[in-house]
């Protein structure tokens, strides 16, 4: 099969480094490259696209009947390495990352996950080259508009989603702040699904911000913080109802650290998963496998905690065998009780 060189390069990246590999490795790489091209070619046929979408729907339908996490969070790491590996510009890498997030949002919404949060921009990221920061900014602005539009159009799978941009907004420009406010207002009615974009965010900043605001509030209202509890503290954090716990935290690209993200939410009781896949490559199937793992262990955990009898379950399905609960008051009144000694009421 002949595929134009330009397309091949775009799909698999340039093969400049091949000369440095040993012969066996080169052979393997050649086979892999060829295979990838064929696979991608197959995947681009319309029929397979439809089939893949159908399969995706079936898989989502299956996992929906089991336990599903409430709050899933992503650390989207690896966009730049992805771009570098394919000889693209850094900007393109970030774009690919944004697309990957939107695709996963569709899936999450269909699965029934209530909340997805993503680490878009860390406060520390301001240390990056200015050009890249600007690019990220612009891309973010464009994506925000796109999301708002989709969440409001009835046909789109993202219809009815709410978006919130959380973080230290004193660090971004006034123009950006207005835009954020506008987008949040446009989508504020969505109740089923919330997407939190953490922009510019660090978890320490989140905690500090809550400490500061709580004190400010107590000073203003002249109220005593004597009975201030952990849960009251948690309610005031950036992520509203979802601040307490993040059920599943996924970090891509192989680093084993949290990098100042979701510290409060994930330091207790939450499942943290690390994968060496770069973020733009983290597609539906990989996410689905992680979800299945979570669901598998959660359902066994619940089973072990609650105890479950298959007999009761079966019996409850058969109407005449089910031992219904009957309230004593619902029975007809018994006849008059008379004792042999003759006394009665």
């Amino acid at each position: 099969m002949r595929i134009p060189k330009g397309i091949r390069n775009r799909l698999t990246g340039p093969r400049a480094e091949r000369s440095e590999l040993t012969r066996v490795e080169a052979c393997f790489k050649f086979i892999k490259d060829e295979l990838m091209v064929i696979l991608i070619w197959i995947a681009s046929i319309k029929l397979f696209v439809i089939l893949y979408r159908q399969l995706q729907n079936v898989l989502i339908g299956v996992v929906r009947v089991g336990p599903v996490p409430r709050h899933v969070s992503f650390i989207m790491d690896g966009n730049r390495r992805y771009a570098k590996g394919r000889g693209m510009s850094v900007k393109r890498g970030h774009e690919a990352g944004g697309l990957a997030l939107l695709n996963l949002c569709y899936a999450c919404k269909n699965i029934g996950i209530k909340c997805v949060s993503a680490y878009a921009f860390s406060i520390e990221n301001f240390n990056r080259p200015k050009e890249e920061v600007d690019n990220l900014y612009n891309m973010f602005a464009v994506k925000l508009d796109e999301f708002a539009q989709r969440a409001n159009s009835f046909k789109d799978p993202l219809y009815g989603a709410r978006i919130r941009i959380v973080g230290d907004h004193s660090l971004v420009s006034q123009e950006m702040r207005d835009k954020i406010k506008n987008v949040e207002k446009l989508t504020k009615d969505g109740a089923d699904f919330t997407l939190y974009i953490c922009f510019p965010y660090t978890s320490r900043n989140d905690i500090y911000h809550t400490v500061h605001d709580s004190i400010e509030k107590s000073l203003k209202e002249k109220s005593d913080l004597g009975k201030f509890t952990v849960s009251a503290f948690t309610e005031r954090m950036y992520l509203d109802d979802f601040s307490n716990k993040c059920d599943l935290l996924i970090r891509t690209s192989g680093h084993m650290r949290l990098s100042d993200y979701m510290l409060w939410q994930s330091h207790e009781n939450s499942d943290i998963q690390f994968t060496s896949t770069l973020w733009p490559d983290f597609g539906f199937i990989k996410f689905y496998l992680m979800l299945l793992r979570w669901s598998f262990f959660t359902s066994i955990q619940r089973y072990a905690d609650a105890g479950f009898s298959i007999r009761e379950k079966v019996i409850s399905f058969i109407p005449f065998l089910a031992n219904k609960k009957i309230a004593l008051d619902s029975l007809p009144t018994a006849p008059l009780a008379v004792s042999i000694t003759g006394e009665h009421d």
């Binding site: 978890s203 320490r204 905690i207 650290r257 949290l258 100042d260 510290l263 330091h267 943290i272």
Partner: peptide, 10 residues
């Protein structure tokens, strides 16, 4: 302690 695992390698 959540404050203390900011960049900690796990």
């Amino acid at each position: 302690p959540p404050w203390h695992i900011r960049l900690t390698e796990l």
